[in-house]
Design a protein around this nucleic acid. Sequence first.
DNA 1: ATCATTGCAAATACTTTGCAGCGTT
DNA 2: AACGCTGCAAAGTATTTGCAATGAT
Lengths: 153, 153
Amino acid sequence: MTAAKLKQQAHARLEQIAGRLKKGGHRMTPQRMAILKAILDGEHPSAEDVFKSVAMQFPSMSLATVYKTLALLKKEGQVLELGFGGQESRFDALIPKPHPHLICTRCGEIVDPNFMDLERAIQAMADQTGFRVDTHRLDFFGLCPKCRAQGTA
Amino acid sequence: MTAAKLKQQAHARLEQIAGRLKKGGHRMTPQRMAILKAILDGEHPSAEDVFKSVAMQFPSMSLATVYKTLALLKKEGQVLELGFGGQESRFDALIPKPHPHLICTRCGEIVDPNFMDLERAIQAMADQTGFRVDTHRLDFFGLCPKCRAQGTA
DNA sequence: ATCATTGCAAATACTTTGCAGCGTT
DNA sequence: AACGCTGCAAAGTATTTGCAATGAT
């Protein structure tokens, strides 16, 4: 996907989220708009990333507001939180439904890979265990192509 | 697997871990032995679970010691930590290598399901993205059979 | 005017660290 | 004696909450 397409996609998603928040009785403040843009333009940013990015426009911005907005977006199902035990969570507003992630342990890049037959594998597990599977979290860790090229350092 | 078999498996694993720690220049103290037993006998216990369980035998036991021991076991690759953003981590000493987990969101039970063709799916993702995949974390969330039976409450 | 939202400060949850004393080898 | 281990207290990290002031509808 090209950069231009991604930007267009992010913009369309921004409108969509804004509409859904309003429908839910929430307000679309300038701060919220900036936070949303930061999440959509960034690549799986952390709360701190979002804060730093928004703080340039809104020097009075507080981290608490970022967290509150993220909590609201989560509650409305408009953002996916990727929490890593201990470390900062990262957020995905483009695709707010659970999907696999491939995470570079050196540079932190996160990409969305294809994963074969996930539905079928989940069904098989459900049949086998008697669980009702509602959601999931699939993370794969390794080195992205760039970091692989940089050697073992 | 029967309860008796599980107990035997846990015992064998305890010996194995003890041996590996000694080889690594570490000491097998009574506290450590109790911590190991608690992890192996419990079902994916949290640090707090381990602490409470061990504190009965060792009233002077400190949570810090539990955490230090868990950190050592992690470093030696003898325990798998399942961290959940914000909430307590849970630990698995029976199978210290990454494997899928099925987690009940009501009662917290964690089971180890079979998962089809994981190797092949990982290989496909690696080919597709250029990543080198080193490890993973696969969690599925839902309701266990018991909790399903108890209704939607 | 009403009621959600902001932002500061304080609180929380979980985990890690510093360090003095203890116990093994 | 050397060195790892224990356990208390304090610090640390990421996130959440209380509340008064602000701002949108």
